[in-house]
Nucleic acid binder design. Structure first.
Length: 249
DNA sequence: AAGACCCGCAACCGCCGCGTG
DNA sequence: ACACGCGGCGGTTGCGGGTCT
């Protein structure tokens, strides 16, 4: 599509199909169609409703905007963490990730990732070898510290009122780990480090960076965690449990 | 006040997999 | 086995509003 088309003539007709932003009338027609015929058979929308939109456009509009079960509003910190976790596991498989976040679309998650996380990656990846080495060294240090403190962490974490449930969820996710307790303790201490840091100085941008730094370490950790365990077959449904369980915090 | 810049989001595109004839 | 159509997915684009300078 040319920039000219995207400019003044946005909302134009090409090969009989309308393009560009949807009008309220078009939305209404599409909603009526779905009410009558259900989702699917998108290519027949135009024929049956007179809507001058192609099937793909109709499907996209319905899935990303008109579906009644869509959750509006900002991504919550809870959801944000789930996105991080799932992205570490699945990569850019947005639809898979979206399955674990009821009411959120793959497009929404994709957009959120790009605007909120990608720039952080860019910052990290764009840094010099020196800073990467620094990051790596820092991770090694943190991991070493955590291994030392694991026993204490496990005790502390287990004493949290919400822990048994979370522990169960981790057990579902990672049923065959060699030393599950150790890894669960490690994981929770990572999470706690991140959240306590963000809670203590929420308005400071530099501290926010530190928090993100830690979240990325957490992200890396997930990759490490998943790669070093034998439980790669855990389904997204398991993570949905996490997404819908407030106790996970 | 105004232009530059940034961010969030809706929408499009190309590709791929699956079902069907 | 092959071609074709459709739906789904991930990547990308560009608009519009907000913020910064």
């Amino acid at each position: 599509m040319s920039s000219e088309q995207m400019g003044s003539s946005w909302g134009f007709i090409e090969e009989g199909w309308r393009k560009g932003p949807w009008t309220a009338d078009e939305d209404r027609l599409l909603i009526e169609y779905v009410k009558l015929h259900g989702e699917g058979r998108w290519n027949s929308v135009a024929r049956l409703t007179g809507l001058r939109r192609n099937g793909k456009s109709c499907r996209l509009r319905w899935v990303n905007y008109l579906r009644p079960d869509l959750k509006r509003g900002q991504i919550t910190p809870h959801e944000e963490r789930i996105i991080l976790e799932l992205h570490a596991r699945w990569g850019n498989r947005w639809s898979t990730i979206a399955q674990s976040l009821p009411g959120r679309t793959d497009n929404e998650i994709k957009n959120y990732w790009r605007t909120h996380f990608k720039k952080k990656t860019k910052n990290l990846c764009g840094n010099s070898e020196k800073s990467r080495a620094h990051l790596w060294k820092r991770q090694q240090f943190q991991q070493q510290q955590q291994r030392i403190n694991n026993q204490v962490d496990i005790k502390n974490v287990m004493s949290l009122p919400t822990m048994p449930q979370a522990k169960e969820e981790m057990a579902i996710l990672y049923p065959n780990t060699i030393d599950q307790q150790e890894q669960v303790g490690f994981f929770y201490s990572m999470v706690n480090n991140s959240t306590s840091m963000s809670q203590s100085k929420p308005s400071s941008s530099s501290n926010e960076d530190i928090m993100w730094d830690d979240l990325w370490n957490l992200d890396d950790f997930y990759g490490y965690f998943i790669n070093t365990t034998t439980c790669n077959k855990a389904t997204p449904n398991c993570l949905q449990t996490m997404a819908t369980t407030p106790a996970f915090y």
